[in-house]
């Protein structure tokens, strides 16, 4: 558990982060969202003490972060940033091995860990181990960046706009991969972004920041249904709200027995996908299948329309 208590940061009299408190449970993926200059990056960087707080404190599992030397603290916390920050003079495996190397792991353990992570990110170790960052595509560089952040199996991973430099198609895939890997490893993640879609897609909880203050810290559903301030509503985009709400509800929870015509959709996709599919193909209901392809039933247009409204 990470506890952020009354955290503030002031530069020359200008307050960048103003009295922010929040708790993050183990295994949660928390997205901090806000416009540029909202203080979200500074908040993130105070967690691993890349920025020293002016007031307040951060503790991880009850241990005050100030009690640990900054560089030792950082070695326990994964850190991935926009534009990956890979070391161009080191191979992929040397890059991933950075923190284990700093921690003094033995060679065999490090190389086993490198291969394990490459496989986890669907990169063939034999092929990629000895490449240099300059020889990778943008998507591959980004995955190596995250793999490097996870190398020493940190319990906490901090990510600053990790997908910011990727084009939309690669970004969508990277987001799904992250969600998947996070579920598998149980890592606690704090991710900073300016993209509300990304926040709703990934976050177990969303923290909305504006002008140094934390405006709302809640589940995506609560944020969509009852935004705390006008600004939060603005970030959500007023015309989008019913669809955002649908996007938060997996089809699997609304399957009903019965048959429907045409192409089935995946049980893990959202009601928003189901609505789109139904509207586009002019159907009243869409069949639902599970990952193995077995038909589970159907989801109706009516259900989707009902669920698009926040009440109940």
């Amino acid at each position: 558990m990470i506890e952020i208590e009354h955290l503030s940061k002031t530069y020359d009299g200008r307050t960048v982060v103003d009295d922010v408190s929040m708790r993050i449970a183990d295994g949660e993926l928390v997205v901090v969202v806000g416009t540029s200059g909202s203080g979200k990056t500074t908040l993130l960087r105070m967690i691993n003490r890349l920025v020293e707080p002016s007031a307040g404190k951060v503790s991880i599992d009850g241990v005050d972060c100030r009690a640990i030397a900054p560089h030792l603290l950082r070695r326990q916390i994964g850190y991935a940033i926009q534009g990956h920050g890979l070391f161009p003079h080191r191979t992929v495996s040397q890059n991933i091995a950075t923190v284990p190397g700093l921690l003094g792991w033995d060679k065999a353990k490090i190389s086993a860990r490198v291969d394990e992570l490459l496989s986890l990110f669907q990169l063939d170790p034999a092929e990629f181990r000895d490449r240099y960052p300059g020889q990778l595509s943008g998507g591959q560089q980004q995955r190596i960046g995250v793999a490097r952040a996870l190398a020493a199996a940190p319990k906490l991973l901090l990510m600053d706009e990790p997908f910011g430099a990727l084009d939309p198609i690669i970004r969508a895939r990277a987001q799904l991969d992250l969600r998947d890997i996070q579920r598998r490893l149980g890592t606690t993640i704090v991710l900073v972004t300016h993209d509300m879609n990304e926040a709703i897609l990934l976050g177990d909880r969303i923290a909305v920041m504006d002008q140094a203050r934390l405006l709302q810290y809640d589940t995506p559903r609560k944020i969509v249904v009852s935004p705390a301030t006008a600004f939060v509503g603005e970030l959500l985009g007023s015309g989008e709200r019913p669809f955002r709400l649908l996007a938060l509800q997996p089809v699997r929870d609304f399957v009903e027995p019965g048959m429907a015509e045409g192409q089935p959709i995946d049980a893990n996709s959202s009601l928003r996908d189901a609505l789109e599919e139904a509207l586009w193909s002019g159907r009243k209901a869409v069949p639902v299948r599970d990952a193995s392809g077995a038909l589970l039933g159907r989801v109706t247009l009516e259900t989707a329309i009902r669920q698009a409204a926040p009440q109940r």
Binding site: Y11, D12, V16, T42, E52
Partner: peptide, 9 residues
């Protein structure tokens, strides 16, 4: 992005 923490370092 606010860069290095100059006042303290």
């Amino acid at each position: 992005m606010p860069t290095l923490d100059t006042p303290l370092t």
